[in-house]
């Protein structure tokens, strides 16, 4: 079916261009490294203090890095006006949305995986037991971030002042993701029993489902007149 073909080709295109240019992932990683550095200067911490604030630092860094990646996702479509070609695809625009979400999710998730060891090293974290849970949290939160972010990326790329408007519109919307991700990460890093913070994982999952569906539907109006 052409719907799934479109999804596949969009993902293929984003991955191939990224593998060749390495623009998005490398800029995201370096930006995040700088954020980590600045944070570690701003709070000189022992291990106990680190446990209190590290979850917040991780997610602030991931959110801003994610915004960089999401912004690039559609501003790359501006070269040679490619976005118009996407608008003229004779298929439901939801296919493009799903393809872009998949690609964005992949980029942000890869960057998170690359960065997390840095946090572990710089802030002396002890994570061996909770690593699978942390991965689950990263997975759910990143999915939520890219589900909303892809829509807003497509929306802001077609207006003036796009670099400013993406974070201004996106960050208030992902407040639940941020709260839930920070609380769940804090719980996992503290080694709390899962039932103490499983509600946050549920919240993330609910957010993901609701916003993937709503954004899928709304993307039609963003990409098509």
């Amino acid at each position: 079916m052409n719907f799934f073909n479109v999804i596949r080709w969009i993902v293929w295109k984003d991955l191939v261009t990224e593998l060749r240019s390495r623009e998005t992932i490398s800029s995201m990683v370096f930006f995040a490294l700088i954020v980590i550095l600045i944070f570690s200067f701003s709070f000189s911490m022992d291990q106990q203090a680190a446990r209190e604030v590290i979850a917040g630092i991780i997610w602030v860094a991931f959110a801003f890095t994610g915004i960089i990646g999401l912004g690039k996702s559609f501003s790359a479509e501006l070269q040679n006006d490619c976005i118009e070609a996407l608008q003229m695809v004779p298929e439901s625009k939801g296919a493009i949305y799903l393809g872009k979400v998949a690609a964005n999710f992949l980029f942000i998730f890869v960057v998170e995986i690359l960065l997390f060891p840095m946090f572990v090293i710089f802030f002396n974290l002890d994570v061996v037991e909770e690593i699978s849970l942390l991965l689950l949290i990263f997975f759910l939160a990143t999915l939520g971030l890219s589900a909303v972010g892809t829509l807003f990326s497509a929306l802001t790329v077609q207006i003036r002042a796009r670099e400013v408007m993406l974070p201004i519109l996106l960050l208030p919307m992902v407040v639940p993701v941020m709260i839930a991700a920070v609380e769940a990460t804090k719980g996992a890093l503290n080694g709390d029993p899962l039932p103490m913070y499983s509600q946050w994982l549920e919240l993330l999952a609910i957010f993901d489902v609701i916003f993937t569906v709503v954004s899928f539907w709304m993307f039609e109006f963003v990409m098509d007149n």
Binding site: K13, V16, T17, R20, S21, Q79, N80, D81, C82, E84, A85, M88, V89, P90, E91, S92
Partner: peptide, 19 residues
């Protein structure tokens, strides 16, 4: 959707990906 499947627009931008 049906129109788009039967129509082509060669615009000022060439709709090509640099990479």
């Amino acid at each position: 959707e049906t129109i788009r499947a039967n129509m082509m627009f060669l615009a000022h931008g060439a709709y090509l990906y640099d990479d």
